[in-house]
């Protein structure tokens, strides 16, 4: 039972946690403010920045003009959504099998799939780079989508598996008794029931793929570069243009920040493989 807590105690807690929370969030808040400033204002001292009068949308336009922001944005969308959808298509049947027709190998298969996730990407950087070079997949959205699909496939399988496990097997048997074929069973009964789980799996994987910054940096150049690589190009010397860097950053993280807030709970499940509930 939760105990009644005095308003005073609650206020103290709120003040401490609020301050710390604000400090954690401050860098994001700060670039949000800078992105609406002119370059001249943006490099002033912090307090002067706050009280400087000019608010402008110029930086956003400048980012697009400098290097075609929307091209990179659409690369990010295509790669992250594409790899997630592709991953789901492969993972749904696999997770279905393991959750509803478990065999004595199921546990081993699951653990093995997980172990592929433990492989450090840098350990296979050279061969993947060479394979991509030789097959013309370097700097292509297709190539990156494939890599990210495979990289996140174990997480997708695992998350779906834990969600499917929660669907009682009797309901699927009922469908079978009712004359549904395997296809109809998956289509009309399992899928609608699993939609919330699939949606959160999808959300988390889009986030992971969107923020992936090893393969995206190493396997792309100008053409297929998603936002991670695009932002990296601000490394220097453009990094000193605070307003533009801020605008570019805000545009790169905003969609994911919003999605992330919706998927807080699933995050724990997806990233700990069910080891923490």
């Amino acid at each position: 039972m939760a105990r009644a807590v005095s308003t005073k105690q609650k206020s103290i807690n709120t003040a401490i946690a609020g301050t710390l929370g604000f400090l954690m969030f401050f860098p994001i808040l700060w670039i949000l403010i800078l992105s609406f400033k002119t370059e001249e204002d943006a490099i002033r001292a912090p307090l002067e920045v706050l009280f400087s009068s000019g608010w402008t949308l110029d930086s956003f336009g400048a980012v697009q003009a400098r290097s075609d922001y929307f091209k990179h944005f659409s690369n990010s969308v295509i790669i992250s959504v594409g790899s997630t959808v592709l991953g789901l298509l492969i993972a749904i049947p696999a997770a279905w099998s393991m959750a509803f027709v478990p065999s004595r190998h199921t546990k081993n298969i699951l653990m093995w799939m997980l172990s592929t996730k433990m492989l450090p990407p840098v350990g296979v950087l050279v061969p993947i780079y060479l394979i991509f070079r030789d097959t013309g997949l370097l700097d292509s959205r297709t190539g990156l989508t494939i890599v990210l699909t495979l990289m996140n496939l174990p997480i997708i399988v695992w998350m779906l598996y834990t969600y499917f496990k929660e669907i009682p097997g009797e309901i699927l048997e009922a469908a079978r008794m009712d004359g549904a074929s395997l296809r109809e069973e998956v289509l009309y009964v399992l899928t609608p029931m699993a939609i919330p789980g699939m949606a959160s799996t999808m959300l988390l994987n889009i986030i992971l793929a969107w923020n992936e910054a090893f393969w995206t940096l190493n396997l792309t150049a100008a053409k297929a570069a998603p936002l991670t690589a695009f932002i990296a190009s601000y490394s220097s010397p453009e990094g000193l243009f605070y307003a533009k860097l801020s605008a570019a950053s805000i545009m790169a993280i905003a969609p994911i920040l919003i999605m992330g807030w919706f998927s807080q709970k699933q995050l724990v499940r997806g990233l700990t493989f069910g080891a923490v509930k």
Binding site: M24, F25, P27, I28, I207, W210, N211, A213, L217, L227, T228, A229, I231, A232, S249, A252, I253, I256, L257, M259, G260, W261, L267
Partner: peptide
């Protein structure tokens, strides 16, 4: 929130 910010940003 910081967890959702991409590493390069």
């Amino acid at each position: 929130a910081p967890f959702f910010v991409m590493p390069t940003v």
